[in-house]
């Protein structure tokens, strides 16, 4: 059999035909630009020095120095306290931001947009950048870290809160208003019961993130276990770094599990 009909070619507009090539060219250009201008010192990466470091660092990392356990746990505890303080400050301070940014609560368009922008602006910065500035402002102590955590968290919690508020059932509010309830009564009887579980859930979730973030603040002097990380790596004390790793992995995992359990029961 030699006779057969092939399917007709797909009909596409010029743009549809061009698009895959265009995307390909853009991607190719980005990668060429990236790989041609990145400066990796391969001579250092594949040097005798690296081989020596590998044979020294890796075994030490995997044999944690348990004699430092008390010291490490002490600073991990401080880290958790910092995360708790920062998260709780943020969980409360983010509430007004959330209300201002929610279009069904505040009818003022300018106030809405302004608060949304403020929240977005905060989220553009990593906590560590904020912490660096605050260390410069108030000196190298946990306080700088706590404020950085708090402000970073306001950015995210404010946004999440406003989304929760915008998704509430407004019929309840209307019903209460029809009953003659005043604004505060509407807030306490109609709005707060609807938003509390999700607010709490998000705040606890943010605590998980803040614990992770707090572990590294000490690298720039903002308190917590990070302080020890800097000291241990400068002294090339890799078995202590190994212990710190173990403690961070264990504590973070534990907190994630507990927090997930609590959040499951909340919502």
């Amino acid at each position: 059999m030699t006779e057969f009909t092939l399917p007709p070619k797909p009909k596409k507009t010029a743009w549809q035909k061009m698009r895959p090539y265009l995307i390909g060219i853009i991607l190719l250009a980005i990668y060429i630009w990236t790989f041609s201008s990145i400066e990796i010192r391969w001579s250092r990466v594949f040097s005798q020095h690296t081989v020596e470091s590998l044979t020294r660092v890796i075994p030490q990392l995997f044999s944690p120095d348990w004699s430092a356990f008390g010291k490490v746990m002490g600073l991990m505890w401080e880290t958790l306290l910092m995360a708790y303080t920062g998260t709780l400050m943020a969980a409360i301070l983010a509430v007004p931001f959330g209300f201002f940014a929610a279009s069904n609560m505040v009818k003022n368009k300018f106030l809405n947009t302004a608060s949304k922008w403020a929240l977005n602006a905060i989220r553009a910065f990593p906590e560590l950048v904020l912490a660096l500035m605050f260390v410069a402002a108030v000196g190298p102590r946990p306080f700088a870290g706590v404020i950085a955590i708090a402000i970073g968290s306001i950015g995210m919690l404010g946004k999440l809160y406003s989304e929760v508020i915008e998704s509430i059932d407004m019929n309840v509010v209307e019903a209460l208003e029809a009953n003659g309830a005043n604004k505060l009564q509407v807030l306490f009887y109609g709005i707060i019961p609807q938003i509390i579980p999700e607010f709490l859930s998000y705040a606890i979730y943010r605590f998980e993130i803040d614990v992770r973030a707090s572990t590294i603040l000490g690298i720039i002097g903002a308190g917590g276990i990070g302080t020890l990380i800097t000291i241990a790596t400068t002294n090339r004390n890799w078995s202590e770094v190994g212990l710190i790793l173990v403690v961070i992995i264990a504590v973070v995992t534990l907190i994630d599990i507990v927090s997930a359990q609590i959040r499951k029961r909340l919502v």
Binding site: I38, E39, I40, R41, R44, V45, S47, H49, T50, S53, L54, V57, L61, L128, R212, A213, T215, I216, I219, I229, T233, R236, W238, V241, I244, L245, I248, I249, V252, T253, D256
Partner: peptide, 25 residues
């Protein structure tokens, strides 16, 4: 993968700087 996610990236960077020296690598 779960364990990898719990290690802060900057701590990983510190370890790799210790091994490969300062730089983008």
């Amino acid at each position: 993968m779960n364990v990898l996610r719990t290690i802060p990236d900057i701590l990983l960077a510190l370890i790799f700087v210790g091994i490969f020296g300062v730089g983008v690598f």
